[in-house]
Design a protein around this nucleic acid. Sequence first.
RNA 1: GGCGACAUAGCCAAGUGGCUAAGGCGUGGGACUGCAACUCCCUGAUCCCCGGUUCGAGUCCGGGUGUCGCCU
Length: 307
Amino acid sequence: MNTELVVITGPTACGKTAVSVEFAKLIDGEIISADSMQVYKTMDIGTAKVTKDETQGVPHYLIDELDPDEEFNVAVFQQYAKKYIANIKSRGKMPIIAGGTGFYINAVLYDNDFAKEKDAENDIRKELQEYAERNGADALHNILKSIDPLSAEKIHQNNVKKVIRAIEFYKLNDKPISLHNAEEKQREAAYNAKIFVLDMDRKRLYERIEKRIDIMLKDGLLAEVEGLLKKYSPALVSMQGIGYKEFVPYFNGECSLEDAVYTLKANTRHFAKRQLTWFRHQCPQAIWVDMDKFDTNYAAKFIKDNL
RNA sequence: GGCGACAUAGCCAAGUGGCUAAGGCGUGGGACUGCAACUCCCUGAUCCCCGGUUCGAGUCCGGGUGUCGCCU
């Protein structure tokens, strides 16, 4: 057993937090959160962030590290995560990545290259966005077709955001993103890692999701969102998080609270489903943990036994 | 018991005689390499049942069943 990094992931509300803490205690590990929203301070209830009590003294990183108006993305995550992994290892402890953002997890597992792009916080995106609005998604897609036919074939024309990214990449790097992606896919694993995906019966997972949201509401989710909206623009990436964006129309008097909660539950269910799709196809080496059969303690032991 | 309305996919719902029955939601599947809790794609019915009119019926007529409303 020469595992040097353990990943514990799975759909939202499947019990990742509890299992990862339990597992960390078992092997003297420290946890790096792979969650695009829990990094933000003051966004606690809606992100189902680990509470101080729940950490049981296990160190957690990438939680509460940024303000809601700071930018966080794969590249930033990767940088931080690599740093923390090295640090934890240097102290003889086991680094554990726990969280549900599969895209981020793979970025550190394969050490994908994001550095080439300078932060040319250019106007390219804005320009292309406007171009699409004015001339239609298909016109934008045609631009991509002319510079990178492979990507054009792969990215649906309605997926304006991804089409823009592909064009932007080409302009910034003078190289088609399809080529870049193909190269990145060839990468060897950067760590000797074991990845565990927690899963459970779909119906049960959905019940847990809805129940958890009801509890969030009792715990004061509304007040949390209202407070954040007073300080921050709803356009921020952080405010696009599930559990926050759904209440914007409610506070604007555009929908009832009941409607907002209904949408929130639906969005969370969809999110969980998307996560599962990702893990199924993007993490072929994953070991799946059936949480219908295991409780928290047993799951932690199971993970330990499978290192 | 009487009168009236309605009966289209899991739910909501267009359609009023004629191409292989809109759409929305949910569900399920999928994509994904600097916004990823993002963004996007795919996914279903012979129209309550029986009979009739018609070249042709979800769409008209009759009967049955069911639901809702009103009345006694």
